[in-house]
Design a protein around this nucleic acid. Structure first.
Length: 596
DNA sequence: TTCCTGATAAACACGT
DNA sequence: CACGTGTTTATCAGGA
């Protein structure tokens, strides 16, 4: 369900505006005022509120009656395309995990009145738009009506959001009022994400409904909660051989009761958070893009390659090294940060059972987004530490992080193991598997250099190599990389790469609150995605250490070592232009080949 | 469809 | 011999 909702939200994001929004907006405002002056409302306001409240009550009652009359309409969530589900869901899930949904936005100043005022409208709207099980019957859109009548399911949430235009507020209100789970608070800026219902708009609603109905009939039974012969009600998964059976099951097992209501609430929260997250990320992306595009023309207010510097600076997860000028700003400046607490919820809500098995899938995403580690881990440290959830990072990234986290930027294999188990609950099992993977990665990637130490061998990170690798990955198109060198002024180059990175990484990391909050590990984060940029061009004042500057005896890849002789300090980093990287690459390649 | 990348599994070598 | 470490190869899956 959640996925579906999210999917729809996205797909319909383009269409939102509708008359209701205006109406609700005004109401919302009224409500807000009311809320602020809770006790001392003007009589007029009060009366309005009361009236609305009354209307709501009536609407709710009517809706409930309808619902009860039609058991089969237990949870009619908007139709959704199951097909798209997997992919989008994965992405959404991943993102939701990544950036904790910003719940920083306070539960809002929306007055409680609004909660009562809007729901009715939504309900009515929903009723109209819902493709009820039976054309003539009014099915409740999103879900069963909560006993209290105030709670609305994800669907309603969406509608609410859309209608109010401030999505988050309404959502939160609901959550607060009925749920307590204020997990996602970032409602603040909810973009034009709209819900299917909204998309329908007023008149379209009816049409839509008809379409749905007809479609429904044609398909002989389709339901958002039914697919592949299985009931998709969260946590259910009962097998229903046919649609009829499913309907029966739905009516029997997921009727309007406390349990279903509670489940709806949970789902609602999930959807809410995902939507909020999506909204924020979208806004952030726009802001970033706008910012980056302008940068070239902008006076060199901050000549430094934005994030680069900061990221570099932060490296070494020095707690004190809070990003001075995290230019990433564009990425996260205003973005509210979601409380960690919310994070764990997502996985659990989504179904912890799935989490562990998400390995392969997540893997992809992780890579894709190049999630920066530190920033990601830091904020969710406890989560990863205790939850048996596979971290969304590649082994290489994790290994690097482990090494970077060490005092002297070097760890023995065993220490790396320890870091893994210490940091991630997930790695406390299947040791054989992941340890093998760790060793495999250490050997496979050039970025990991084995250094002979007094007491044995330790592994260090060849940051340049790592960045190179990353840049290649992020940049995606070699062309971009090639172009970079041409323009040594990293200004543009960086912009280009940044944009590419952004495009590819889809800013998950950028938006990562970790950067903002946890100055400590943010470094990696940056390193993660933008890191390559950091090292690449740019000055990274403060960049500590080059990870790999073995003062020790390097057994492997001496050539690299030589190159790296100079720590990745400013000099190194400065020189470490893409161009150099390329050269280095070539050299390395040749050398390697030669050696081999 | 092809290519790339990452995860996983497994075999093997070497040192303790 | 057992175990840990390190290297290498093969296979699979997901994404571009």
């Amino acid at each position: 369900m959640m996925q579906e909702s999210a999917t729809e939200t996205i797909s319909n994001s383009s269409m939102s505006q509708n008359g209701l929004s205006t109406l609700c907006s005004s109401q919302l405002e009224a409500g807000s005022r009311d809320g602020r002056s809770s006790a001392g409302d003007t009589s007029s306001e009060v009366s309005t509120v009361e009236l609305l409240h009354l209307q709501q009550q009536q609407a709710l009652q009517a809706a409930r009656q309808l619902l009860l009359q039609q058991p089969g309409s237990g949870l009619k969530s908007p139709k959704s395309q199951d097909k798209q589900r997997p992919l989008q869901v994965k992405q959404l899930l991943l993102r939701s995990r990544k950036r904790r949904v910003c719940s920083d936005t306070p539960p809002q100043q929306i007055s409680p009145c609004l909660l009562y005022v809007l729901p009715p409208l939504l309900l009515i709207h929903c009723l109209l738009s819902m493709p009820g099980p039976a054309p003539g019957q009014a099915a409740l859109p999103g879900q069963t009506l909560p006993p209290q009548g105030g709670l609305s399911p994800a669907e309603l949430q969406q509608l609410w959001k859309d209608v109010t235009g401030g999505g988050g507020h309404a959502m939160e209100d609901n959550g607060i009022k009925h749920n307590n789970s204020t997990g996602a608070g970032g409602a603040g800026a909810s973009p034009p994400i709209t819900h299917h219902a909204l998309a329908n708009g007023q008149s379209p609603v009816l049409n839509h409904r008809r379409e749905r109905d007809s479609l429904h009939e044609e398909n002989g039974g389709t339901h958002p909660l039914y697919g592949h012969g299985v009931c998709k009600w969260p946590g259910c998964e009962s097998i229903c051989e046919d649609f009829g059976q499913f309907l029966k099951h739905l009516n029997n097992e997921h009727a309007l009761d406390d349990r279903s209501t509670a489940q709806c609430r949970v789902q609602m929260q999930v959807v809410q958070q995902l939507e909020i997250q999506l909204s924020k990320e979208r806004e952030r992306l726009q802001a970033m893009m706008a910012h980056l595009h302008m940068r070239p023309s902008e006076p060199k207010s901050s000549p430094k390659p934005l994030n680069l510097v900061s990221s570099v600076t932060m490296s070494k997860n020095l707690p004190s090294a809070s990003p001075p000028n995290l230019p990433q700003t564009p990425t996260t400046p205003t973005a509210p940060i979601t409380p960690m607490a919310a994070m764990p919820q997502v996985p659990s809500v989504l179904g912890g059972a799935n989490v562990p098995s998400m390995g392969a899938m997540r893997r992809r995403h992780v890579d894709k987004y190049s999630m920066p580690l530190s920033s990601e881990i830091a904020p969710n440290y406890e989560f990863y530490k205790n939850a048996d959830v596979r971290p969304p990072f590649t082994y290489a990234t994790l290994i690097r992080q482990a090494i970077m986290d060490s005092a002297d930027m070097q760890l023995t294999l065993n220490e790396i193991y320890s870091w893994f188990t210490r940091t991630f609950a997930y790695f406390r099992r299947n040791a054989a598997t992941w340890k093998n993977a760790v060793r495999h990665n250490l050997s496979l990637h050039k970025c990991f250099v084995r250094v002979e130490n007094v007491k044995g061998a330790v592994w260090t990170v060849d940051e340049m190599e790592y960045q190179k690798r990353r840049s290649q990955k992020i940049t995606g198109s070699p062309s971009l990389v090639k172009n970079l060198p041409s323009s040594l002024g990293y200004g543009t180059a960086l912009n280009a790469s940044l944009q590419a990175a952004l495009a590819e990484t889809s800013l998950p990391l950028l938006g990562n609150p970790g950067l903002m909050n946890s100055g400590s590990s943010a470094h990696d984060e940056l390193n993660g995605t933008l890191d390559h940029l950091d090292t690449n061009g740019h000055s990274s004042p403060g960049y500590s250490p080059p990870v790999h500057m073995p003062q020790i005896h390097v057994k492997e890849e001496p050539q690299n070592m030589d190159d790296e002789d100079c720590p990745m300090s400013l000099v190194t980093t400065a020189n470490h232009s893409p161009e150099l990287e390329e050269e280095r690459d070539l050299e390395e390649g040749n050398l390697s080949e030669d050696l081999e």
